[in-house]
Nucleic acid binder design. Structure first.
Lengths: 336, 336
DNA sequence: CTTGGCACTTGCGGTGCCCGAGTGCCAATT
DNA sequence: AATTGGCACTCGGGCACCGCAAGTGCCAAG
């Protein structure tokens, strides 16, 4: 049994490296298994019965199935740490980032370059952030600009028309009351936090205030999770032969925010790997996804990861994803 | 001569529609030219001498060269207006946009869907915008957040560490002085506008103020042009056979901000078309680019456009690009 | 100048063939 | 009982060949 798994590992590693179905002979030669091809053939037949490998056609070698990769990832491999120069490169790459947009943009680029795969990075979730400040600017007597700044560095702004004009003093009052109530509170709690605020104003202005509250809640809740950035799609083309048909469906899937968000899933700390058919989305059946959460505070407020062909170097890729997540988390903590 | 051009137009239109080299016979049949195949052959030979068409191989029909497309675009075609339902779709698509990010995101998506090509949209240039408001928030005694809001809707923010603590009253003063000086002024003029501002403060705070000014200028000038959004890359794969080799180099080029910015070029009002080898970038020699400026005020503050295979439907694509630019300009004017 | 006719070129799809890689099974060996 | 060498078998890929169809250029006649 032990030996059989050793053979599976050899098959996966060889196939990932060469992109050719691996036969019993090369397996015996290339890996230091002191065992004859015939024996390997027997074991391979068993592995095929277990559904871990298949032959694409009779006269070819074996390649791992999705299930084979699964076993490999779960039991046969260890996450490979990055090399020292790679780690230094990451540090340097993030170094000059000036704001959250910049951090996210650099991170996604970095991740795709390190892994040579398509990288996906989600902006820190708004609902998991807390309010750092709410600013209210008057553009015209009946036109306000609201700026919501979260402690994760995210900034959302919105313009709204007021039903009635608002004078400067009301504005000042509104601003201070808004901040007094909400700063430091979770955005998810804002509906609760701001409830009844309009009652602290005169009857006349209450409609205006309700309007303002409405827009703030919109900013905080409705659009909150939806920002995702992708980079390195050209890597898809480089691995093109790996995808059953063409890269088209994959590219298509990557353009839908909804798909991406589902792909990243809930932000959790530990690393997750989804292999081929384990994915719900049919367009992605020939791809694998590696994701992990990240966030400045230690617990995950967003997810990042990569997507590539199922035939990928899992140990290295997993190492890269986890390292980048760690670095960007630390960077967010220190800088933004 | 007139007739020869008519034949070129027929070749382009036919080839764009069918993606097959077009021969003299189908040309005589499909288009209402009351002229025999033999005559057409003579004219085609002439067109080939002029470098407007070529035969991929001896026993095949002719296809247009880059130069052929050029002549077609410049002299033989008229921009095709969108259909009424398409126009309505555009309106609807932009309808619910809540802020500039949203407008840009919707626009790029829209453009790629309408044209079935890769769409590229540049954010309104900061240096061509004017200041709407500068906000200064205190996060800690020695930590400020600066928010710069432009009249084109763009919002940039930056956090900075101060060399010394800054008290609340200085902050208020700074805020009002900053806005008094700069609101309504062009961002490009900010270095001039803010010059000597620090002298209006006590010696002690002058270093702080200088720091703040420095960061504002950074926001306004240094990173100012660089935001570009791309959508619809999956359309590349759909047209894959059109690209000489693979889509890889094109995808690669589309990932470099610098390349994209050069592609879009200076924001100018009229529409520009670059065909195949007219492009400097070698990776894009099998593509054509259609761009035009847009902006809320009537004159262009940014550029948008599409990129696709040289074998594209120029009249329709040009119509779509120009229409979308018009619509988004109007939308920006009204809403943001 | 236009047109029909005709000989010529050439890529493409289909066919048949061989070769090599790899297998499964069996009998012999340890 | 597990391992191994041997052997017959399968099958896909590459290659050469062939005929076809499309399309051309040129020429001579209208």
């Amino acid at each position: 049994m032990e030996r059989r798994m050793e053979i599976l590992r050899a098959i996966v590693e060889d196939y990932v490296a060469t992109n050719e179905p691996v036969g019993s002979k090369v397996l015996a030669a290339r890996h230091g298994l002191s065992i004859s091809p015939a024996t390997i053939r027997n074991e391979m037949a068993a592995l095929e019965d277990e559904g871990l490998i298949i032959q694409p056609h009779t006269s070819a070698g074996r390649i791992p199935t999705d299930l084979g990769y699964r076993v490999f990832v779960d039991r046969l491999s260890t996450v490979k740490p990055l090399s020292a120069p790679e780690r230094r490169a990451i540090d340097k790459f993030l170094e000059g980032a000036v704001d959250l947009d910049d951090v996210v943009a650099r991170t996604v680029r970095l991740l795709s370059q390190v892994t040579h795969q398509v990288a996906i990075v989600q902006y820190p979730s708004l609902t998991r952030s807390a309010v750092r400040h709410i600013e209210v600017l008057s553009l015209a007597p009946n036109r306000l600009m609201l700026v919501l700044i979260a402690d994760t560095g995210r900034v959302e702004q919105r313009i709204l028309e007021l039903p009635r004009d608002m004078d400067e003093s009301t504005l000042t009052l509104l601003r201070s009351k808004l901040n007094a109530r909400s700063v430091g509170k979770k955005l998810a709690a804002l509906p609760e936090t701001l409830k009844g605020l309009e009652e602290e104003f005169t009857e006349n202005t209450a409609t205006n205030i309700r309007q303002v509250i409405g827009v703030i809640l919109e900013m905080a809740i409705e659009r909150s999770e939806e920002r995702v950035v992708v980079s390195g799609t050209s890597n898809l083309a480089r691995h093109a032969p790996d995808f059953n048909e063409s890269v088209h469906p994959v590219l298509e899937a990557l353009e839908e925010q909804v798909v991406l968000l589902r792909l990243l899933g809930e932000a959790v700390d530990e690393m997750k790997v989804k292999i081929g058919h384990e994915q719900e989305n049919k367009k992605l059946h020939s791809t694998s996804v590696i994701t992990t959460g990240y966030g400045p505070t230690g617990d995950a407020v967003a997810t990042l990861g990569i997507i590539g062909p199922t035939r990928m170097d899992y140990p290295t890729s997993m190492g890269a994803v986890s390292a980048v997540a760690r670095y960007v988390s630390r960077f967010l903590q220190e800088e933004i």
